[in-house]
Design a protein around this nucleic acid. Structure first.
Lengths: 254, 254
DNA sequence: AATGTGCATTTCATTATTTGCAACGGCATT
DNA sequence: AATGCCGTTGCAAATAATGAAATGCACATT
């Protein structure tokens, strides 16, 4: 395990649990020696990615992370382009809408607008969605680079509910169906009682870079609703791609 | 130089220049060997902090950074609490307003609302503001922990304009005046022709954690304007602190 | 006040990772 | 065909990371 991997796993731990963590707890959770853990944290602090409370000695994520994320957004304005579309979709459907972006680890939820209804689906910002168990993931895979799709089909497919797709063949079928349809339909694969409809967001090269999804409680989703949502979600996904890269296919990021 | 410091310096380089960079350019800019640079990048890619274009082989910042920043925001909702106040202040003043957060390297600009006027001040999101040369920095220092203030006074004070405060004694005077007033007044210390008024945002322990500032072209700022702005900026800064930590002093982050 | 416990921090010899050189193969230009 | 540039890989040398143990600190208990 490389040193940078260790350092970043500490960031993940700091981000995952309580807002602040003690050295001993971090070391235990990460499986590193206390001394090692501390030296990694010191390095991260010097770079502004971690902060330490002067008095309690507790560690927390630092503002340097916000800075890096803002610099990225300045270079590739995914949120700036997508947010208005997500808002429109949320207003049009009245259900929870979430937006995600591809990362090595899965689809990262980068924006959520929750339905105003009492019975609604809740997704956490920053959550990583598994490719095989969510509508977003399947919509993504349907238009993803071959290499990525194969990687998921070949890898493990852990079950999150009794409805999670567990074998590669079925998953491949769902992906193919989503590709034909232009959007995917997720039925309780990640969370019970939740139906989702998702569409890919395509990059300049025509391959997926993310997904947009509408999620609603199962009780509120009739077949006709699903079909109606499918159409407008697909349009929303395409709209985001066009805002990001222009209407001309094959064009590169500015 | 620790390995993590090297890796993070690559992230800074990727964020600083063009949206995408080639290996050779990165290695040259960072001063690392080509092989070293590549291995660091591979580690960062495995963690999702960097992405590589499959065909062009160019590197760019990855979505994992957004994820970490979102997790931080979930733990410490600085933007969520501050943005409405910034918006109100922008509406009330009609000038550019920007919000910054303390980091080891300086004050990080985390939100900006630009004035609608044609002649307006422009600040970049993610920019790092020098403590000694900006109204925000001096407002921050006025209520910062003693150790941080001393560090700045002892350190170098590079000049950005002919108006930048260059010696520690003058800087200390300005900081003391800001402390007495509750807000700072910046006169072209960072950019010529720009006047700013800034107030600190105080943490649970009463020390600064950031700053909020109004920036306007010098031609539009009479003495009376400055005084008026000072009052409302100070109130905005206090409002943000209260939203974050509640009105009770000495209370810790949830 | 003294003792004990749990924590963060520092030290240092050992270990293992990181490093940089150099060589290779691909690709485009000359 | 030759040249130059780039990304990638192998390998011995150099350096940074490691973990056990010691130290110091603060707080709680006796």
């Amino acid at each position: 395990m490389s040193t940078v991997a260790k350092a970043i796993s500490l960031l993940e731990l700091l981000g995952g649990g309580a807002p602040e963590a003690a050295l001993a707890d971090l070391a235990r959770a990460a499986g590193f020696d206390k001394a090692t853990t501390r030296r990694l944290l010191v390095s991260l602090i010097a770079q502004g990615l971690v902060e330490q409370d002067e008095t309690t000695r507790l560690y927390r994520l630092g503002a340097g992370l916000t800075r890096l994320a803002l610099m990225r957004e300045a270079q590739f304005p995914f949120l700036r382009m997508a947010v208005p579309v997500v808002e429109m979709l949320a207003a049009e459907t009245g259900e929870t809408v979430h937006l995600s972006e591809y990362s090595k680890r899965g689809l990262i939820t980068v924006q959520v607008i929750e339905s105003a209804k009492a019975n609604r689906v809740s997704v956490q910002l920053g959550d990583v969605l598994p490719m095989h168990a969510t509508a977003s993931g399947i919509a993504f895979l349907a238009f993803a680079e071959e290499r990525i799709r194969q990687g998921i089909l070949a890898g493990p497919l852990p079950a999150f509910t009794p409805f999670t797709i567990g074998d590669a063949a079925t998953l491949a079928d769902h992906v193919a169906a989503a590709r034909a349809r232009g959007h995917s339909i997720g039925a309780q694969g990640f969370e019970e009682g939740v139906m989702s409809v998702a569409a890919p967001i395509l990059g300049a090269d025509g391959y997926s870079i993310g997904a947009i999804a509408v999620a609603a409680p199962r009780v509120r989703t009739q077949k006709a609703d699903i079909e109606r949502l499918g159409v407008i979600v697909t349009a929303a996904g395409r709209e985001i791609g066009e805002r990001l890269f222009g209407r001309l296919p094959g064009q590169k990021r500015a």
